[in-house]
């Protein structure tokens, strides 16, 4: 084992955390990989925002590496590749060049294009509007179109690294405004289903489930971090709606 190798291992694990892996599995992967390279003792501490690893070799040498993780977004295809790579590394213990090369390959994954993603925002908003009880075509179409606008905003914001909470607040204000406008101009009879459909694409449901799983897997810190993040994001979304609803209530009354 060399410092360079540990760097590769941590790099791999950093990418796993960024693409939405469970934290205890990442710790597990680090331990397995370091052990495969001959470490006798591995101490890895991983949360969603940092990684600290110290690995002790049989001859008494110690290697340490730390990473600060700043942003993350769920990317399952990438996670799948990285996970298989971690298994491969544990099995075959490749040298640094080989490792680096494979890591670069694993980081290059196909993603859906911008407009494809927007299209699926449209679908999500539309289908959940129907799901939660709307049976009017106008309502569904209005909701789907608003969903598309929200999608464009979210994706653009993600690209420019805008604070997630601001994004939720702003997007929720935007879709509420548009929904109330539809109501005001008589396009739809109620805003309920439109807003529910659009809430679904912004709700941090995944964050919350991940938080609980981490909590009960024994990762108290990560669990709490994720849970608080999810609750804050949801609150921002709710505030965005409430602000607009109050303003509209004042204007309409």
């Amino acid at each position: 084992m060399t410092q360079e190798l540990l760097r590769c291992i941590v790099e791999l694990c950093e990418q796993m955390v960024c693409s939405g892996a469970e934290v205890y599995r990442v710790e597990d992967s680090i331990e397995r990989m370091c052990t495969a390279y001959g470490a006798v003792r591995v101490d890895a501490y991983v949360t969603t925002s940092n990684i600290v690893v110290t690995s002790e070799m049989a001859d008494g040498r110690e290697f340490t590496h730390t990473r600060r993780i700043k942003s993350s977004s769920v990317n399952i295809e990438k996670l799948h590749g990285l996970n298989s790579l971690a298994r491969q590394v544990t099995r075959e213990t490749p040298d640094v060049e080989e490792f680096r090369c494979r890591l670069e390959q694993a980081e290059q994954v196909k993603t859906y294009s911008f407009w494809q993603q927007v299209l699926f925002y449209v679908l999500i908003a539309g289908s959940f509007t129907v799901f939660f009880g709307s049976r009017s075509l106008r309502e569904t179409v209005a909701s789907a179109l608003i969903g598309g606008i929200v999608g464009i905003l979210v994706l653009k914001a993600e690209k420019h690294n805008v604070n997630k909470m601001m994004v939720r607040f702003f997007c929720s204000a935007v879709f509420s405004t548009l929904a109330f406008m539809c109501l005001h101009f008589g396009i739809v009879k109620s805003v309920d289903n439109i807003i529910i459909g659009n809430i679904m694409s912004l709700i941090p449901g995944v964050g919350f489930t991940n938080a609980l799983r981490d909590l009960f897997a024994g990762d108290t810190m990560t669990g709490i971090l994720r849970a608080i993040e999810a609750i804050l994001l949801a609150s921002c979304m709710v505030l965005g709606y409430i602000a607009i609803a109050y303003i509209y209530g004042g204007v309409a009354a």
């Binding site: 939405g20 599995r25 996970n83 309920d192 529910i196 809430i199 709700i203 449901g205 995944v206 949801a234």
Partner: peptide
Amino acid sequence: TPRTTFWIVNLIPLIPGGSLYYTMS
């Protein structure tokens, strides 16, 4: 594949979005 793959999508229809909306309204 890591189980996160299916775990994060399977439960989407169960997220109480409607209930949350009626709470906030």
